[in-house]
Simulated assay, not measured.
Amino acid sequence: MAREQSNDSQNLFFLHSADHPGLVLVSNLLNGNNYNTCERAIRIALNAKNKLGFIDGTYDQPSNTDSTVAAWSRCNSMHRNAPRIYQLKQSMNNLAQGSFSIHIYYTRMKTIWDELKTYQPAPTCHCGNMKAWNDYQEQESVMTFLMGLNPSYVAVMAQILMMECSPSILKAFSLVVQEERHRAIDFNACAKTAQGSGSSVALTQSRK
């Protein structure tokens, strides 16, 4: 029997206004040791939304001539990406610079961020909504980038956060890379000075 789309929350194809492909279903992050707990939490969340059948194969895809095929496709797209979105958000949450160079860290962060954006709905382009949305996304990417930096970059982080106009992610990246290069130059200069001092001491001692 065909399931007609409805605004009834009990209908299989009902979508709440807050539903979107980037919606986080559960708050506990998968850490490699809690798969069963996370799986159970996701199943409970989807079951509560009456959408579990879209990921366990219970709700088969209707034929192309079925009146519900469009509604089925929309709901299926909304929820079948949940595991990948969860994985991406987990990776983003755990990502930190650590021993990586700024360039490698930024590249990894940007790769995850860009994929996540493909699952996020964009507002209809009117009344400046698109610009506001893009500005918000840019600010969020800057904040994510800064939060993963090593504590030793706190000075340049403060400089970026104190800017009157929120910088683009590329500008923030450029400023941090510049700081990294300055440190490399200072380190090399100190190393040469120390090496020179050591050579002088050795030469003096050899003359005695």
Rank of each mutant, 00 (worst) to 15 (best):
Y106R: 04
Y106G: 03
Y106K: 01
T107H: 01
T107A: 03
W113Q: 05
E115Y: 04
L116E: 02
L116F: 07
L116T: 07
T118W: 07
T118L: 04
Y119K: 08
Q120R: 13
P121E: 11
P121D: 15
A122D: 12
T124H: 11
T124C: 09
H126D: 14
G128V: 11
G128W: 08
N129C: 12
M130A: 15
A132Y: 14
W133Q: 10
W133G: 05
W133K: 08
N134D: 15
N134C: 12
D135C: 14
D135N: 14
Y136R: 14
Q137S: 15
Q137D: 13
Q139T: 14
Q139G: 12
Q139A: 14
V142S: 09
M143S: 15
T144P: 10
T144L: 10
F145E: 04
M147K: 13
M147I: 11
N150C: 09
S152P: 00
A155L: 13
V156R: 05
V156N: 00
M157I: 13
M157Q: 13
A158L: 08
Q159D: 15
I160D: 02
L161D: 08
M162K: 07
M163K: 05
M163E: 07
C165T: 10
S166R: 06
S166E: 06
P167R: 02
P167M: 05
L170V: 13
A172K: 01
S174R: 02
V176G: 01
E179V: 04
E179N: 01
E180V: 09
H182E: 09
R183F: 08
